[in-house]
């Protein structure tokens, strides 16, 4: 039995997850299906969205904010940040522009979440 707080939405449901049988994980305390998926994933493969920023050259701002398009395995957060640290993009950058394709072979792209125009 493990206890989690669901992070899918601001409700923050208190989940109790019975993982004695890895093939039949039972989630209770959730109020929606996303809570069930979250509870199972927290046991098998916890994932997080990563939001950060990368340097911009010739832009109206020094940095542009970015996010992983979907959640990536929790263990890869700092490896993905290490990649972002060394990236410099040229302005202009627009919302949705791919900054890193298929980061760490997760099949998830890192995209820009803000517009930074060239100056």
């Amino acid at each position: 039995m493990k206890e989690f707080i669901c992070i899918n939405c601001p409700l923050g449901c208190h989940l109790v997850v019975d993982d004695s049988d890895k093939n039949n994980i039972i989630v209770t305390g959730n109020t929606c299906p996303r809570g069930k998926t979250y509870g199972i994933n927290e046991i098998l493969n916890p994932k997080r969205m990563v939001t950060s920023s990368v340097c911009v050259l010739n832009g109206e701002n020094n940095v542009v904010s970015v996010k992983t398009k979907e959640a990536i395995p929790k263990g890869l957060i700092f490896d993905s940040l290490e990649i972002l640290k060394n990236i410099k993009v040229n302005a202009p950058v627009h919302i949705g522009d791919v900054i890193v394709k298929n980061v760490l072979n997760t099949n998830v792209d890192i995209i820009a979440t803000r517009n930074v125009e060239r100056i």
Partner: peptide
Amino acid sequence: IHNGFGLHTFNEELTGP
């Protein structure tokens, strides 16, 4: 720049910008 905005309005999780 973190995510979690717009779940009610757009039914998806957006960043602030």
